[in-house]
Amino acid sequence: MIDIREAGWLTPERVRGYAVLLCLASLGLLVDAWLKATGPVGSDFLAFWGAGQVTAGGHPALAYDLDVQERVQLATGSQGWFAYVNPPPFLFIVAPFGMLPFPLAWIAWVAGTYALWAWAAIRAFPRYWLPVLAFPGALIAAGHAQNGLLTGALLVGGVALLDRRPLLAGALLGALIIKPHLALLIPFWLAAGGRWKAFAAAGCSAVGLLALSWAAFGTATMQAYMTSWEVSSVIMQVADADFYLRLSTFYGQLSLFMPSSVALAVQVALAAAMLGLTVISWRRFGQDGMATGALMLACTAIASPYLFNYDLPFLILPVMWLVLRGQAEGWRHWEKLAVIALYFAPYATRAAALPLGINLMPLAAALLVWLIWTRGGKPRQDQYS
């Protein structure tokens, strides 16, 4: 008699086969995303490309000028445009893409950032390279042409390298100055574990990138960036139900049913709880950077109030960490099925959000935190090789 709690039908051979099918199907979805992005529908990538174009043209401050960005982006034939609100160091990254025609820049951006993310994730889990490549959390980010693959590469690389190359790990994590709300827990995580080399490297990386962008782009660009904070504030003030459904956070979902101020208070309490778990994880996992890092990344998906499903490629690390522990030490009842659900969660919860009227990704993140925490103990080092 088959015990569904064990999911014994999911053999390594079937995992590889399903991963290949998922990759092939995703190619068709990416082609469809490119056709929409280069047509009247447009794409989030328009903001990056428009900012990159004016930066490459020698006018980086205009990346934050709404009138200029509207004109530049609509010239592609899109019927919509997007404000650029990322910090100035991100201009170093988008400037080369602004020198390309938009259709080609979209392809180069998706291919380049996916390759960086895949390189970091496969180095962390070389035995599972095929399911890593097919991770739906990365594929949804690719379809949106957002920066989740790039930030995912920094987070995965930083966590995976912490025990072996702390200075490089810290430098990667500090580069999250390009999207700092993804780094909410990182300083506390590093400090709690006494990883001071990585802590210092992260600080130097963040401050260095800010200083370099100031020197390269000028004070006018730094001041223009501060005006973009008003744009972000307005976006949140006029947010409707569809916007909150696209957020993959407890704050976003609670805002559907209660005043935003109350939802934010609950979010702050949740963030404090995730911070507490992150800090004490070093004792629970025996100073193992990969284990505590897996928990920290899972907690990040709950702690940050402003995340979309395309921001979640970094969840490949906590999901695959559970796979390593399950394969090495045995699976608990229902655990394998839960990990399968978590593997698909970034994509599936986004697809179901509008039809269901709620985005279930925050609950998936909570399940991920619980599964990692209850695993406890320090894993054998050979599990990471």
Score class of each variant (00 low, 15 high):
20 V>Q: 09
96 P>Q: 11
217 F>S: 11
261 S>R: 12
202 A>Q: 01
216 A>G: 01
379 P>W: 07
93 I>T: 09
68 V>W: 06
184 L>A: 13
107 I>W: 10
284 R>I: 09
146 Q>L: 00
227 T>S: 15
178 I>P: 02
55 T>L: 00
230 E>V: 15
23 C>N: 06
175 A>I: 04
288 D>H: 13
61 A>E: 15
381 Q>S: 14
90 F>Y: 14
315 L>E: 09
49 W>C: 00
64 Y>Q: 07
24 L>D: 01
270 L>E: 03
277 L>V: 09
335 E>Y: 06
314 F>D: 06
264 L>F: 15
23 C>T: 11
138 A>W: 10
119 W>R: 12
80 G>A: 15
208 G>I: 05
379 P>K: 10
376 G>S: 15
207 V>W: 09
379 P>F: 09
69 Q>Y: 03
174 G>W: 02
33 A>M: 03
233 S>Y: 12
367 L>P: 01
62 L>R: 14
13 E>C: 10
92 F>D: 02
364 A>P: 03
107 I>V: 15
96 P>H: 10
280 I>M: 12
286 G>Q: 12
121 A>W: 02
175 A>E: 04
53 Q>N: 08
126 P>Y: 05
211 A>I: 13
287 Q>Y: 08
123 R>K: 14
106 W>T: 03
370 W>T: 12
192 A>N: 08
222 M>K: 03
9 W>E: 01
256 L>A: 06
29 L>H: 10
91 L>F: 02
134 A>G: 05
378 K>W: 02
336 K>M: 03
119 W>I: 10
21 L>G: 08
251 Y>C: 00
353 A>V: 08
284 R>Q: 11
21 L>S: 09
157 G>C: 05
178 I>M: 11
98 G>W: 11
373 W>C: 02
198 A>D: 02
155 L>M: 15
309 N>D: 10
161 L>W: 07
14 R>E: 00
98 G>A: 10
16 R>Y: 07
148 G>R: 08
143 G>I: 04
359 N>I: 04
298 A>E: 05
128 Y>N: 13
332 R>N: 09
243 F>G: 03
206 A>C: 09
76 T>R: 08
9 W>H: 11
5 R>S: 15
348 A>C: 01
92 F>N: 06
88 P>N: 08
288 D>Y: 11
51 A>C: 05
41 V>K: 13
338 A>Y: 02
185 L>H: 05
91 L>G: 01
126 P>W: 07
120 A>R: 06
347 Y>C: 08
288 D>I: 04
205 S>H: 02
128 Y>T: 08
212 L>N: 01
230 E>Q: 15
280 I>F: 09
230 E>I: 14
185 L>Q: 04
321 W>A: 07
162 L>D: 09
257 F>V: 15
125 F>M: 06
33 A>W: 01
368 L>F: 05
339 V>P: 07
230 E>P: 12
77 G>Y: 14
372 I>L: 14
87 P>C: 04
43 S>Q: 07
241 A>R: 13
145 A>M: 07
